[in-house]
Nucleic acid binder design. Sequence first.
DNA 1: AATACCACTATCTTTTAGGATACTACTTAA
DNA 2: TTAAGTAGTATCCTAAAAGATAGTGGTATT
Lengths: 110, 110
Amino acid sequence: MKNKQKQIQLRDVQDVIDIIGGRWRGAILASLCDKEKRFNELKRDLGSITPRTLTKELKYLEMNKLIIREVDASSVVTIVYRLTKHGKSLEPLIGQIVIWGQKHRKVVLG
Amino acid sequence: MKNKQKQIQLRDVQDVIDIIGGRWRGAILASLCDKEKRFNELKRDLGSITPRTLTKELKYLEMNKLIIREVDASSVVTIVYRLTKHGKSLEPLIGQIVIWGQKHRKVVLG
DNA sequence: AATACCACTATCTTTTAGGATACTACTTAA
DNA sequence: TTAAGTAGTATCCTAAAAGATAGTGGTATT
């Protein structure tokens, strides 16, 4: 493989890590893989995230077209966040991450 | 799926993100998937990493049993970093990351 | 003998992520 | 009508990540 191509691959890895990286983004996406969720629902799921951080991360993920914020017209209070089609395409990757994570825990602990 | 199980999955995602996350770790591992490399070789590959950061990241990855530092007994100057068996098990995941990264670039740019 | 490369280490500074906490505007249920 | 929940904002602060830069002790090269 050419060197140029390798550089591009490294950049791809860095891009993806940027998207699913940080303390919360991967977990938010994983949580939304399960089903669409509301703000406080996500907050509870994630445990210790602050509302400030959750807001920021949701906006970031929306900007990157991975999730959408939907306001139910019938009521202003009903807002759900759900994965876009593009966001859903992350699901197998997240699945593999979970599997590897479980194996890794065994290797490092055992 | 039970709620407990979901929490564990979120933790797995966070664990893995911790390992391959940050600006450099994923790229270092991806670079070593290609073949084992020397310190300055990695430095050149990664482009703008500083030696301080590279040292720190390599130590972290070594601690997590993903790479090993090998000193060639015949010469003190020949030190290579290579993936452990456990580190190699990350290769398919990194492969998928690269593929998704390429798709993502198209979605966001196009 | 001088220069350049190897694999780092040390120090100092900046940047960024994210926590803590309090507050707002609105709605629904008791 | 009061209390509790929803979906956030605003402000301040801290810790960690990582860059900039210089230096070290060795080796190999010419």
